[in-house]
Design a protein around this nucleic acid. Structure first.
Lengths: 333, 333
DNA sequence: TTGTAAGCGTTATCAG
DNA sequence: CTGATAACGCTTACAA
């Protein structure tokens, strides 16, 4: 038990070497760059710091300022590339702003537990990509929700209604009229609003989805695989389906492959998110691109700039767009 | 600029309420649980803390102890699911041990820059999944390398030689003799030793890889796609190839699809890592499973338990295993 | 067994 | 413009 940790060079060391008092060093190095300190002194301090290889102790600074220069990111499932993209976007701006990113996988501990742990680290802000309906979070550091509008908490949104509408229009344009849907039974905005827009766009075109072509599934490959397998086992089955996210769509693709069905000839499939994997499957997945990295980046920027309090100012939803690839085609019958 | 951050309840508050001195509280709550303090007092403190909802300030504790109860993880590319698995494994044990995980993407800042930033956060340890030959890291907090043995730094390894050998044996067993290889020109153990074992296992069977069937590529989908496209454009081309990781293999699969070639009929493909995506492509990828999560978990455990100093004791390499799926078949000519 | 005092490295306040 | 001095919340030696 060594009470004296192998600390590096401190402001004291720099002060001694520069022949000034210790707070002066602090002022020069980190305090407001506008601080009035003689240019000569300033230069001397700079040099001393450089020569000694001074690196500020972020923990000490954090204790003093009551913050940690770090952001937390809580995601429902690290295995979904969408979450990775959100994280990646957040990481990018965090790195730019000299902030750290604390990664929290909600599969390991509950969101509440994670929030508590982050709070005791004086976290500057937390980005939450909700897994279930995130009505009231238990405490409030600076919080930003991804793709989940809330009265209490600021959020960063993509235009998921357009996502649903684009998918519907695309399928209609290809001549499909026997259309199915696979998605989770979820209250989350991202799913709910997309689904609603999809359904109502079809309805405006005079088409309603048969109830047995409307399937619920977990938002995962496995879920999509099962739901789609059941769907295509029906006679008749739809000529096209829209899946609430790419994982489900990829599962559907697998289900078709397993039955020897050809996509898009026997079934057109549209996904949502445009995760990396969408371009890796064969045929490549037609999908609605959701700017996940940008969502993460924006959230991080809001938190770091302390703008998360301007709740009214939740900015415009980010646009989504249809990416036509290989899993959709003109209806063949 | 409010110097008084909205700090929560502190040890002082608890002390006041329990009617004891502040250090006593510290002793009871976090100090060695063996500390001799009267059971009555102990109970009183516990109660007070509970009633006040006391949560220790990890930053303050960190400053005092010269550590941060956090681990850094530096990965070369967040887009590789292998890295995600390493992170995920580390996150699991970190969460169990009340440690945080600071995520560092080497695409955003250099490894050196990340290490510096982590050091000034008094990081307890850093897990590094190296991108390039990581000869001498610039400084030394507790460090563990993933899949890269080093004289100076402890590491956690998978048995990549077996990986190469298993791939070779599998292809030989299927009757292939015209065999190719696609992998990066890298000095990293994970690639180098696997490649060597692959080549020498073939040689033992009397087979040497034609030089034009031995392709270099970036360890990415795009790299694999290009290299494989060039490879299958040759006449004759091999009947089977081994790809140094799954991303490359998936790229190869795409190249085949683009040319209208059928896998595994026209070309057998073996990948390496067994990333999540390997099961999503069609046909599913035959690959060598590398226990990425377990690598991450072990590394985290070493760091947290402070065992990283027992360098001699770098444990046995973790076993790998062949996962036979749909991209390999008996040779057809 | 418990309370007192000191200090971790910083930043902030306030005299000089 | 600069230098003491006092926090920030916690742990740990040491004294009572």
């Amino acid at each position: 038990v060594t009470p004296r940790p192998a600390a590096g060079v401190t402001v004291h060391d720099v002060a001694r070497r520069a022949g000034v008092s210790q707070p002066t060093v602090s002022l020069v190095l980190s305090g407001h760059p506008t601080a009035r300190v003689a240019p000569a002194t300033r230069e001397r301090v700079r040099r001393a710091a450089e020569e000694l290889g001074y690196r500020p102790n972020v923990v000490a600074r954090g204790l003093q300022q009551g913050r940690s220069f770090a952001l937390g990111v809580i995601v429902p499932d690290l295995r979904n590339p969408f979450s990775i993209d959100v994280i990646s976007g957040a990481e990018r701006v965090a790195a730019e702003e000299d902030h750290a990113v604390l990664l929290c996988d909600a599969r390991e501990r509950s969101v509440t537990a994670h929030l508590g742990a982050l709070e005791s680290r004086l976290i500057d802000g937390v980005i939450v990509e909700p897994a279930a309906y995130a009505a009231s979070l238990p405490f409030s550091p600076n919080l930003v929700l991804i793709n989940e509008p809330s009265a209490d908490v600021p959020s960063v949104l993509a235009d998921m209604e357009s996502a649903g509408r684009l998918a519907a229009k695309h399928l209609l344009q290809l001549g499909h009229r026997a259309i199915g849907f696979v998605g989770p039974a979820s209250d989350l905005y991202r799913f709910r609003s997309m689904e609603r827009a999809f359904v109502s766009t079809l309805k405006e075109a005079g088409i309603s989805i048969r109830s047995e072509w409307f399937r619920r599934s977990a938002p995962s490959v496995h879920g999509g695989e099962q739901a789609a397998a059941a769907l295509v086992a029906l006679a008749p089955h739809p000529t096209a389906i829209f899946c609430a996210n790419d994982l489900i769509a990829i599962g559907a693709l697998k289900a078709c492959a397993a039955r020897g069905m050809s996509v898009p000839r026997d079934l057109s499939i549209v996904g949502c998110d445009d995760i990396e994997t969408a371009r890796l499957v064969n045929p490549e997945l037609t999908t609605i691109a959701v700017p996940a990295r940008e969502l993460g980046a924006r959230a991080a920027r809001m938190l770091i700039r302390g703008l998360s309090h301007q709740r009214a100012k939740t900015p415009q939803p980010l646009p989504v767009k249809l990416i036509e690839r290989g899993t959709t085609a003109r209806v063949s019958r």
